[in-house]
Design a protein around this nucleic acid. Structure first.
Length: 455
DNA sequence: CTAGGGCTATCC
DNA sequence: GGATAGCCCTAG
């Protein structure tokens, strides 16, 4: 799986309620970038949420908050008050819970405050309040009155709540997952298409010159744009660039927010250009179809005028153009043709109505009396060819066959002695040993010659 | 790199 | 036209 796609998926999943073991399994399976800060932050937030899911805090949260602070520092962002408050609350909570047990309390103070927090003098996650707590908590190790003071004061600490506040703030800073932004953008695009069509339908009633064809073209433009957006998002993001247009992900090197993510003058220009290119490649079949219909109807009128008394079998078919623009034979004629249909050909014979590779819709093929004369006519379509685009760029291997050179007696004798010395099959070794004698030969030549000598 | 099948030019 | 020598291609 593409590393970006797996990242998007993981980012999205991280916003969902998730068991830790599932997350760990996903991280183990998905290919992930090592240097994507937003993903790391999302992972940390998920881990913190997981830690507080049982209604209490753990020392692990301290580590996660420290990691988060490191990421903030990398981005030049200062640790927030919410982060500092959460860190302080968790540290205090994880310590004072052992106040009744002297040994455990001593170990907790040593582990959390001496070994962890004391080493973080200048780290942003540490606040002035934390240092005040440190003094009181250490004092409580030696004097009971400080112990009581810590007990009373710590009752006001709501560690889980403080962590939740931080989590919400962190989520907001990280922003929505890329896939969510993408879906929302596409939905807006859909709404825009619908709104556009509604508007066009209203215009139709007022403006009779606006044809169905034009409306379809407009609709196609909007849909085309949507597809381009999807393609650019899914295929162009590794480099982040498609046709010179950069599609930024939210929160990552983005100069614009999610709202104007996909609507910049450059993207619009690129999409228009792509649309024009597609139109240039795909010929609109409608005008040609209408010409064909007109031709067939005029033929029908002429035939009717020239052969008014002809019987049903020889009568030229009547054609009608249905509401879809499809030219059809008159129902009566179809009925007639069924009665006079030729015997069904063998299954192995070519079926004239089957067009697997090449559509045979040329008007030249619609000669009278042909098997298609009384059948349904379809719109002319672009002719498909069997030419593979790969063939166009296929290099024809040009190899000049070497002129056959007869083996001299010296060469034959050398080959024999070589085989005697090194054994059959060591053609390269023999060739290298007597390279000056086997001029213009190859090890394969030696092999071929030996085959010839021993045959 | 080697083995083996196939192709082609040359010889008779 | 068949036989053969020399060369080429490709799978393993």
């Amino acid at each position: 799986m593409d590393i970006d796609i797996s990242r998007w998926i993981l980012e999205f999943i991280l916003r969902q309620p998730l068991q830790d073991y599932i997350l760990d399994a996903l991280i183990g399976v998905l290919p992930l970038p090592n240097d994507h800060v937003r993903l790391k932050k999302a992972l940390i937030v998920q881990k913190i949420q997981s830690e507080i899911s049982n209604g209490s805090v753990s020392e692990k949260i301290l580590k996660f908050l420290e990691l988060m602070e490191e990421l903030y520092t990398q981005e030049g962002i200062e640790a927030s008050e919410a982060m500092q408050a959460a860190y302080c609350a968790v540290a205090v909570d994880c310590t004072v819970r052992f106040l009744g047990e002297k040994v455990k309390y001593f170990e907790a103070v040593k582990r959390i405050w001496k070994q962890r927090i004391n080493k973080m003098e200048n780290v942003g996650v540490v606040s002035k309040e934390l240092w005040e707590w440190r003094d009181e908590i250490e004092a409580a190790l030696w004097e009971d009155r400080f112990c009581d003071n810590v007990k009373i004061r710590s009752k006001s600490i709501a560690a889980v709540e403080a962590v939740k506040v931080f989590v919400e703030e962190a989520k907001e800073r990280i922003g929505p997952p890329f896939l969510q932004v993408l879906v929302e953008t596409l939905r807006r695009d859909d709404d825009a298409v619908k709104a556009g069509l509604d508007w066009q339908n209203k215009q139709v009633s007022q403006d009779l010159t606006c044809s169905n064809h034009d409306r379809e073209a407009n609709k196609g433009d909007a849909l085309l744009r949507r597809k381009h957006i999807a393609v650019q998002h899914t295929r162009g993001t590794t480099a982040g660039i498609c046709r010179g247009v950069k599609i930024a992900e939210p929160g990552v090197e983005a100069s614009c927010g999610p709202d104007d993510l996909l609507s910049t003058p450059k993207t619009d220009e690129a999409l228009k250009l792509s649309s024009l290119e597609l139109r240039a490649v795909v010929k609109d079949p409608l005008p040609e179809a209408l010409d064909l219909a007109e031709t067939l109807m005029s033929l029908d009128r002429n035939n009717s005028a020239q052969q008014p008394a002809e019987n049903d079998n020889g009568r030229a078919p009547n054609f009608v153009v249905d509401s879809n623009g499809v030219v059809r034979a008159n129902e009566d004629d179809q009925h007639c043709c069924h009665h006079n249909a030729a015997p069904k050909p063998s299954l192995m014979a070519r079926n004239n109505t089957a067009h697997t590779f090449e559509w045979n819709d040329s008007i030249d093929d619609l000669s009278e009396g042909s098997p298609r004369s009384g059948r349904r006519f379809t719109l002319p379509s672009p002719r498909r060819t069997k030419v593979s685009p790969l063939k166009k760029y296929e290099f024809k291997k040009v190899t000049t066959r070497r002129k056959a050179k007869r083996w001299s007696t010296l060469e034959e004798d050398t080959l024999r002695s070589g085989v005697q010395k090194y054994g059959v099959g060591n053609w390269k070794l023999i060739f290298d040993t007597y390279r000056e004698i086997f001029e213009d030969r190859t090890p394969v030549d030696l092999k071929d010659k030996w085959r010839n000598l021993t045959s």
